[in-house]
Simulated scan of single mutants.
Amino acid sequence: MLTALTSQGKQVVLTRQTSLDSLREWRKTETFHCPQCKEQVLLKVGDIIIPHFAHHQQTNCRDSFSEGESPTHLLGKIQLYELFSQLQLQTEMEPYLPDIQQRPDLLVTWQNQQVPIEFQCSTIPIALILERNAGYHSINMQPIWILLTPPKIQDSSACVLTHRFSQFQQHFIRPIHSSTKETLTILLTYNPQKQQFHYVSHFIHLRGTSFAICHSVMRIKHQTIPFAIPAAPSTTDIEGLTRHYQSARRKYLRSVIGYNQRGIHHRFLRACYEMRVQPIQLPAWIGVPTFRQEAFSESDCEWQLLLVAAIRQTRRTPFQLDRSLIRTFVKTFEGDSTLQLEACEHYMDFLREQRIDIYRLDIFIGRDFTLEVLSGRFLAMHARN
């Protein structure tokens, strides 16, 4: 814990403003108590470990769950507390919310709204995250979760890169409403060691847990309230996203035969066989990053080819498509069928707009739609900004 009460009932918040020597002298003459259970707590001051308060080993206090925090977590909370305080915002460290029996890392009041701030450094069950959010929502609070920046991202200076995000990390990717048709999605992370926010945005799903992303860095001293929003990708960024997507597409198509143990029994390869096309020779209109494509864990090449195969079996075209066929199709995949249905409809829109003849796989082989699709998606943001 970073907060406690003195023997006179005054709240103490440990920040970097007080020297270690001063804290050591202070604890000789003062006793400290837990703000929640009022039991006496210890002020621990070491040369390496960040100063903090701790209950005695035998305690029934609910707040004891917040102990055992890593130095990184403690440092991040201190820095965020100092940030909001310097911005002249009412900021509480580790306040206890009795109505829901929860204690956020910080509680910031902005425009008469209390906003819980959670700095999450470790992986915990998603069910616990949902439970905490439900608690906040029940008292009309909208929490902001900030993740510890993943090592690969904090060590990268690239503006565009490919990264694998765990299911836990993906849970914190949140949409930001904008005036454009496309929704901007971001993952807000923070690195206390370098005092930098790392923004991950404009996710383009590749396959499984891999995404092509835009990456931007902001020093904590430049952060604002509300939190700054990443700019729309530049033309150079879009070209970078395109290269990462194209590379992942080629890698998948080249490896699907060599590394697949099921051979022709793999339904993607089976569909290629039945349509008499080699995976590496798929036309460029199969494997396109249309909106909501992240709803499928499979490569875009795979689910889009299988959808085209399903339509061909009915002898129909994208212009004649019955929505019930798509509903049946998405049931064969794991994931959110509602979002997958939306992804399929966006892909059908693409095929109709491009007037693709799905019965001619030998057309447009030399044309790449990726840059066109991504440019159409992101350049619209520039036009409205």
Rank of each mutant, 00 (worst) to 15 (best):
R243C: 00
A271Y: 07
T328R: 07
V200Q: 01
H177Y: 10
I48W: 14
K331P: 05
Q154F: 11
I153Q: 02
R16V: 00
I146A: 05
C121L: 05
L14V: 09
Q79A: 01
T59Q: 08
H56L: 12
T72Q: 07
E94C: 01
M93W: 12
Q57E: 09
S19F: 01
F296G: 01
V160I: 15
P318K: 08
F369Y: 15
S247V: 08
A248F: 05
A383M: 08
R316G: 00
I213S: 00
S375G: 05
Q17D: 14
M93Y: 12
Q40K: 13
P279N: 06
V12D: 02
E118N: 10
F364E: 13
L80K: 12
S64L: 06
S234I: 10
K38F: 07
D237E: 14
S201E: 03
I144L: 15
D357Q: 10
Q17N: 15
P51L: 03
T242R: 03
L128V: 09
H198W: 03
G135V: 14
R16E: 13
G366Q: 13
A310G: 06
I356S: 11
L97K: 00
T29M: 03
W303H: 08
D63G: 10
S201A: 15
Q261R: 14
H73E: 13
C344W: 12
S7P: 02
R250T: 07
K194C: 11
T370Q: 03
H198A: 09
P95E: 02
P143Q: 09
C121H: 06
P98F: 01
A231K: 11
D237Y: 06
T209W: 09
G208I: 05
V330C: 01
P35T: 09
Q195V: 08
R207V: 12
M141S: 07
M218D: 03
L14D: 05
F291Y: 09
Q167F: 11
L106G: 10
I286Q: 00
T6W: 04
F291Q: 13
R377C: 08
M93C: 12
R316F: 03
L83F: 13
R262W: 14
L184Q: 11
R377Q: 14
Q114Y: 02
T91M: 09
E39S: 14
T123S: 12
D362G: 01
I129S: 04
I50Q: 09
A228L: 00
A158D: 12
Q86R: 14
L42A: 08
E353F: 03
C214P: 01
A309I: 02
T91A: 08
L89A: 02
H222P: 01
R323N: 05
K10P: 00
G46H: 10
R164K: 15
T235Y: 08
T183Q: 10
D368S: 15
R24Q: 13
I363S: 10
A309W: 01
